[in-house]
Design a protein around this nucleic acid. Structure first.
Length: 810
RNA sequence: GGGAGUGUGGCGGAAUGGUAUACGCGUUGGACUUAAAAUCCAAUGGUCUUAUGACCUUGAGGGUUCGAGUCCCUCCACUCCCACCA
């Protein structure tokens, strides 16, 4: 018996809206629960089936928490600035503002069709003027605290499109749009000093409930390690160089030093490179700098380099190390120089082979090999015993590392330092569709921040989106009408910053704005922060592991230090939902034509079926393939529920004992499963109950109503409709979550499997209060058991209370 | 190259070290129907067996344990993240 999902779902969505059923009360005395989804980027493609997965999970938790007496904050908004809208504008001429607003409309309609219990009164988009005003305010806060600064950095540049490219627009070193080769260009750019918080970002991971996998990703990304800066005197020049390493243990095996082509030591003004080598070195550097990082890596790891003409002295053994310049060394790592130990580092080995440099063994091979290293397979990197290394001989590598560090520090030749893989966050973009940066440049006074009462800096509309090679805001006439905050001059010589902010800046604080989205005086009032932070549950994709989730933590820590927020971690618990794959097991993509449109599923089967199907597919965190046939299983389940409500013979009689037990088990299982977000097994449990209910001779109204309550967070429309049909005046969501009495689960009989040597040979039914002796005696009478113990010695008997009995025989 | 994870029926998946395959899909048979769909009932890991039952089975191989899908070791396959990071 199929129910009319279209009219039922529409009816309740309208009613919930009208009655503002999900509006959150800031003044409520109930305990708070902040349940948050990662807000979507409203793309032109519309909602994807991946979105409802996370949204349904948080919706179930929100409804469940409300029924458990919590005041729940469950908001939604739009991550609205970004590149796709700008690209669309370049292609079609439609302004980003227009296409973005249209997309938001579509997204909102689609999300609403799923019956999600958001408090829409708090909605905002990051491109709203009164949102990005506060994003600018955050920039000024960071600037004031010395956490925002400007320096030269490389950008990807496409000569034919005359534009800067984001990393994701560079495909295999070529421009996504025109396929032209991408080059690197230096520009002055803005940074946030995330590195200042590196330690706390690592250490505080212990305080929060994130997936271990994600914590590890963040740890590795921040990459805190102990290094040692070693000083090397130069030969024939009264100077020293500092080379940093995490592996000083192999330093007796050093045969050369390599320096990155970008390194400033190699500048023409510096006397580091002797005259006779100048030409050759410059030629090499020019070639190297033309290549992008990607190109440098992708050349099959072929090594090249030239001798600089200079030598460093290894004080450990007074050997001369020739200094080379080579592009496999990265200037951003350590001090931009590497000591080459070709015997025990693959890259150094390849380089030594390429430049015909000597190779020295200082670690014994795994098979006791102590011969000369001539072949790549002999190169050993991270384990083994030291040899040819003076005081380190015989030590394991791990021990040798700290011993060598101690020695170098004692001698005053080196100094331990903590270094990080994390770099400062490059936040400026040479783009139009983003938050303008509130900085003014004056010919007289230089770089100046605006004061906060001059905000917002409004994004102008008199802009040509077609790329010209410069930030689009540069060409606006109105935008640069500004007076210098210091000398008051205006006109020529006073200009605004024309870069915009990375959209990740906008999304680093949006979870604060929901708390107080209409506040015109502050980004959020202190009382509201005090009341609602931290977010109790945050659900979203794993792709934000080392981006958004680090930036948001960084922002919150800055606010904490500024005394504006009482907690220094924004998210108490985080869950990553897995990808939903296409039916063919591949990723859904437009080009493969295997995309499932949620609108069609909702239209055909209803929102409740769609919601429950996505929850039933498998564990929330796993990636799993879509199966259109599988939807029918859920559809049948909901139709059955409807069918029961339609039947007139639902009586107020006493429920059967056995059915009552199944119900208690179901409440317990669903309650625990929602808490742990194991929603697939919660649904199985409800199916088991429904099967039992249908089979039961005395299926009663009371049990059915209790079942509706636990089903309601999953299938809100259907349960609400049935609730009303059964004569209730108030919304089912105003009811309390059912409690269960576990004591009623105690059975007077229990089934005990009998094992012989761990193999089940029979089962017995015994009274629940039977003693071990009783059970053993009964077990020995089972025919099949006797067959296996006859004529054998029972060596040992194991009884696990209420679980099983095992005879060990020989 | 580094790090993390995953391997269970035809498929998605379930199992605090204690009766592996719950729940759903699919398939097969049956009921209802002139017929089909829908619905309902039954069966459904494999091999052997008349039945009772026996043997095998959680990627492969070993180990610990009275007992292993679960813990340990070796190997194989796949997935994700990072990556010339010194």
């Amino acid at each position: 018996m199929s129910y009319d999902h279209k009219s039922i779902e529409k009816k309740w969505q309208d009613k919930w809206d009208k009655e503002e059923l999900y509006k959150t009360d800031d003044l409520s005395k109930k305990p708070k629960y902040y349940c948050l989804d990662m807000f979507p980027y409203p793309s032109g493609a519309g909602l994807h089936v991946g979105h409802p997965e996370g949204y349904t999970a948080t919706d179930i938790v929100s409804r469940y928490k409300r029924m458990n007496g919590f005041e729940v904050l469950h908001p939604m908004g739009w991550d609205a600035f970004g590149l796709p809208a700008e690209n669309y504008a370049i292609k079609t001429g439609v302004p980003p503002e227009k296409s973005t607003r249209d997309n938001i409309k579509t997204f909102k309609r689609q999300i609403k069709s799923l019956g999600l219990s958001y408090d829409w009164s708090r909605e905002f988009a990051t491109c709203d003027l009164d949102y990005y005003k506060w994003t600018q305010w955050f920039f000024l806060l960071f600037y004031k605290k010395g956490l925002a600064y400007r320096k030269e950095a490389k950008v990807n540049w496409c000569e034919s499109c005359k534009t800067v490219l984001a990393n994701e627009q560079v495909i295999d070193d070529h421009c996504e749009r025109c396929n032209n080769q991408v080059v690197q260009k230096n520009l002055k750019q803005w940074f946030f000093k995330t590195t200042a918080y590196a330690d706390r970002l690592v250490d505080d991971l212990e305080k929060i409930d994130f997936p271990e996998k994600l914590k590890l990703m963040q740890k590795n990304w921040i990459g805190r390690k102990e290094w040692i800066d070693i000083t090397y005197p130069l030969k024939d020049l009264d100077r020293e160089i500092v080379v940093s390493t995490t592996r000083p243990d192999t330093n007796f095996g050093a045969t050369f030093v390599v320096i990155a082509p970008e390194n400033e030591l190699l500048n023409a003004q510096d006397d580091f490179v002797p005259k006779e080598q100048r030409e050759e070195v410059d030629a090499y550097i020019n070639e190297a700098l033309k290549k992008t990082e990607l190109e440098r890596v992708s050349e099959g790891r072929k090594k090249s380099g030239v001798f600089t003409g200079r030598y460093a002295v290894n004080k450990l053994n007074n050997t001369k190390l020739p200094i080379y310049v080579a592009d496999f060394v990265l200037n951003t790592v350590g001090t931009g120089m590497v000591v080459g130990v070709p015997g025990h580092d693959m890259r150094d080995f390849e380089f030594a082979k390429a430049c015909d440099l000597p190779i020295k063994r200082v670690v014994v091979g795994p098979d006791g090999d102590t011969t000369d290293i001539t072949d790549a397979h002999q190169v050993q990197e991270d384990a083994g015993t030291m040899i040819n290394s003076d005081f380190l001989d015989g030590l394991e590598i791990s021990v040798a590392i700290s011993k060598m560090m101690d020695y170098l520090e004692e001698k005053g030749w080196g100094k331990r330092t903590i270094r990080y893989h994390l770099r400062d966050w490059l936040i400026s973009r040479q783009r139009y569709w983003g938050t303008p940066i509130p900085i003014v440049y004056c010919d007289e006074c230089g770089e100046l921040p605006l004061s906060t009462d001059e905000l917002p800096v409004v994004l102008p509309t008199d802009v040509d989106f077609k790329p010209t090679g410069e930030s689009p805001l540069k060409g606006s006439k109105t935008f640069h009408e500004v007076t210098c905050p210091k000398c008051g001059k205006s006109g020529e010589g006073v200009k605004r910053e024309s870069d915009t902010l990375d959209t990740f800046v906008c999304s680093s604080w949006y979870f604060f704005r929901y708390l107080d989205s209409k506040n015109e005086q502050e980004f959020c009032s202190k009382e509201k922060i005090q009341k609602w932070m931290p977010v109790d549950l945050y659900v979203g994709g794993a792709e934000h592991a080392v981006g958004h989730l680090i930036y948001s933590r960084f922002f919150t820590k800055v606010l904490y230090d500024e005394g504006l927020c009482g907690v220094d971690e924004p998210f108490k618990r985080l869950i990553n939902q897995g990808l939903i794959m296409a039916e063919d097991g591949r990723k859904m993509s437009k080009s493969l034509g295997n995309v499932i449109n949620p609108d069609e599923v909702v239209y055909e089967y209803g929102a409740d079926t769609m919601r429950m199907y996505e929850m039933f597919m498998g564990p929330l965190e796993d990636s799993k393939p879509w199966d259109t046939k599988g939807i029918m299983g859920i559809k049948r389940f909901l139709d059955k529920v409807w069918g029961i409500a339609e039947k007139k013979d639902l009586e107020d009689n006493e429920s059967e004992k056995s059915l009552e037990k199944v119900l208690i088990k179901t409440i317990k299982k669903v309650t625990e499963d929602i808490e742990s977000l194991s929603l697939n097994t919660a649904i199985s449990a409800m199916m088991i109950f429904l099967n039992a209910f249908q089979k039961s001779e005395a299926a009663d109204k009371k049990s059915f109503e209790t079942f509706l309550l636990i089903l309601s967070p999953f299938a809100p429309h259907l349960t609400e409709e049935i609730w009303e049909k059964l004569g209730h005046k108030n919304s089912i969501f105003k009811e309390s979550w059912p409690q269960y009495n576990e004591a009623l689960l105690v059975e007077d009989q229990m089934e005990i499997p009998i094992q012989i040597n761990g193999k089940v040979r029979g089962t017995i039914m015994v009274a629940s209060d039977s003693t071990e002796e009783d059970i053993i005696a009964l077990a020995k009478e089972v025919k099949n058991v006797q067959k296996f113990i006859e004529g054998k010695e029972i060596k040992k008997t194991i009884y696990v209370e209420g679980r099983l009995l095992n005879f060990v025989v020989i």
